[in-house]
Nucleic acid binder design. Sequence first.
DNA 1: CCTCAACTGTGAGATTTCTCATACTTATGA
DNA 2: TCATAAGTATGAGAAATCTCACAGTTGAGG
Lengths: 227, 227
Amino acid sequence: MQEIDNQDVINNFITTSGYDGQFSFDPQQDTKLFHFAANDFIVKAGAPLTYLFYLVKGKAKLYDVLANGKVSLIDFFTPPCFIGEMELIEQRPETAFSMQAITDCWCLALPIRSLQKKLLADPIFLRQICLYFVHKNYRTVKTAGNNAAFPVAQRLASFILLTAHDGLYSEKHVQVAEYLGISYRHLLYVLAQFVKDGYLVKQQHHYKITNLDALTALAQDVNESTN
Amino acid sequence: MQEIDNQDVINNFITTSGYDGQFSFDPQQDTKLFHFAANDFIVKAGAPLTYLFYLVKGKAKLYDVLANGKVSLIDFFTPPCFIGEMELIEQRPETAFSMQAITDCWCLALPIRSLQKKLLADPIFLRQICLYFVHKNYRTVKTAGNNAAFPVAQRLASFILLTAHDGLYSEKHVQVAEYLGISYRHLLYVLAQFVKDGYLVKQQHHYKITNLDALTALAQDVNESTN
DNA sequence: CCTCAACTGTGAGATTTCTCATACTTATGA
DNA sequence: TCATAAGTATGAGAAATCTCACAGTTGAGG
């Protein structure tokens, strides 16, 4: 994680992302900008949360580490969205989950410690956060519906497109299987199908997308229904 | 839906449910109390929403009517919880979903039209609603995890216990199948298993629970993980 | 009373997905 | 350098779940 000190860049992100409309005060003074390289952690479970982040560019994923030590993928995030807002609202000092950058990510960041009281008393911010929760909730309901409603191949196609990076898919199978709610074995079956059908080609440590159209077509229903 | 005008009863519900802590003002003046008989609609999709409800007693269920006309069960609610808060936050005039009473329900109710502005500017209320959303979100994530993680028999057991009324289970199979994300056919298989195993007995228009312990044991893992 | 739609119920075969057993490879730490 | 853990990979049989085809029951409306 690397701070970017260029005020022009910061201001540009602030205005184009709708960030400045989230508060009743002008946040520019207190706002920093951070860059996270792909695979960096934006927040790590159990670590103290020092910033309220606002993702303005990139893709990120949210993990939960279960009691038995297993890692399970919860959800994916694209701009604009808050990160750490649940902990802020609950006034809990550390993060419950881990958020990791999939691609390079840029986040506006507001220091929590000095601003928490102000934020929790700011009706505009609270209302915006409420709206954010409502939409997130709709989305979760839809997604949950999808998981029940669509076969694995379609969801996997959607998943590959979501997480692929420069046409390369390289998620850990164990985690993906858990995210999709299927067994490791079956995931490999379906991936093998995709390879057999020419959608993917297996390479050293990843899969390369060789038929983007086919995957997109497969994923279409899932995505439509989620939007 | 029937208004209950007994101020003692109202006050009792207000104080025991934590309702009065949800606002920065004293809501007692504006609060009504309604009783809904089992199977009544508390809110109906598309109808104008005139009250923000706060369920203080009973069980209710939330439906979505899909584009193709099918009905799908989204979630279940037990006290204390808000009903209509998503629409209030979004300032959308009608309800998106339908909420129906499973057992007899009692709801405190605050007229929206006259109080919307006040509520949307009330930091305490907004913060409480935010907390409510956060918890609801945790719950949804857990539930979604469960649906992937547990076999149908266990989820069905949990579901039966949740919706049963006086030891009788009488949900529409079509809707339950959709809620559990399984086919109608398979639901009947599993129900038949339960009957064969002596957990349920089929009667005229419903099933009677004949082995509560067994069902509870089956549902235990699911419920534990959801709390 | 008749008809239609919705709900319930069952059988049989196909498909999806799981479990288990077993290896090979790679990274990591002692 | 060796041992161990984690990730990857595959086969085979079992279990879960789906699709389809068909039929009986019930309730509402003409």
